[in-house]
Write a protein that binds this DNA or RNA. Structure first.
Lengths: 152, 152
DNA sequence: CACTTAAATTTGTACCAACAAATATTGTAT
DNA sequence: ATACAATATTTGTTGGTACAAATTTAAGTG
């Protein structure tokens, strides 16, 4: 669907505006598709991301700052996301012996099992959403995105 | 910044994954920049969007369904966004005479004045964020986004 | 008119984000 | 050792999102 149609605009927008609006609409679309999958497993996107980060630790624990560093959206409340995961027994938390300010977070066996269930669906959806773009187009798209964040 | 670096991934990701993650990171970036501007005027993004939609009505009122239709993210709670704007006296609400189920929302003079103040800053930021892409690249970028939403 | 269905909005709940302030622990300087 | 700064996490508050259920009013049917 065209952007003007999507937001039901009655004026003709400049291309750079349309591109930015399309970026927001499309990321919303991607988020919605991902949410729909995760929801069937009782997970939210940030919860899933925390689990993936912990899995990436390969047995090593992570403290909250580390998790926060690796999140796509650097938000401030990893504590409360982890709380939810602990309720579901997907992760566990213990105070770091060396530095009692730090909290070590582990993924549990339950957590691993849930990830293994979710991942095939997740990756299928990722492939589907990018299936209309060939390698060259993906590369272009990637570079264009980088140019928007040029002043980051 | 590269995507792997951004999420501190230690594995090499496939291009289609990197592109999708970059999409989410970049839309987050755009949202953050926009929020930063609106915040100095005491507005949130959805509040600003509702104001813009009402301005686009050119004197005509809008009901809640209309506003919702034109929002970038079609969320369910226009009522509460409008409540915030009424508190700030940027919009007013009155029950439609013809159909008392419908609520007519108007932008106030205050609302217009605030929009006139915000818009130059907003448009400057839009131009800045797209300044590294020429017209042809913007067109490509726009088309690539559409291809991701192909199954919409 | 009574009854049912549909439309438009409101309300409730659970979760997340942004921000600021509070708390707890460690490190450092004198 | 005491005071102070830095680090890591937690907590409180406001605003937003998604979803479902409730409410209100309008419209249609016998």
């Amino acid at each position: 669907m065209d952007v003007e149609n999507h937001i039901k605009s009655n004026q003709t927008l400049k291309l750079h505006k349309k591109a930015l609006i399309n970026l927001l609409i499309t990321s919303q679309y991607v988020n919605d598709r991902i949410n729909a999958i995760l929801k069937t497993f009782g997970l939210t996107t940030p919860q899933f991301n925390v689990l993936r980060i912990l899995k990436g630790q390969k047995g090593q624990p992570a403290n909250l700052s580390t998790i926060q560093d690796r999140m796509i959206s650097k938000m401030s409340n990893t504590t409360r996301i982890v709380d939810k995961l602990i309720e579901k027994e997907l992760v566990s938390r213990q105070i770091c012996k060396d530095n009692r300010r730090k909290i070590e977070i582990f993924i549990t066996d339950n957590g691993h099992q849930l990830l293994d269930q979710v991942n095939p669906h997740f990756e299928k959806e990722e492939r589907l959403m990018t299936s209309q773009l060939n390698e060259n187009e993906l590369k272009e798209f990637y570079n264009h995105l980088n140019k928007i964040r040029i002043n980051e």
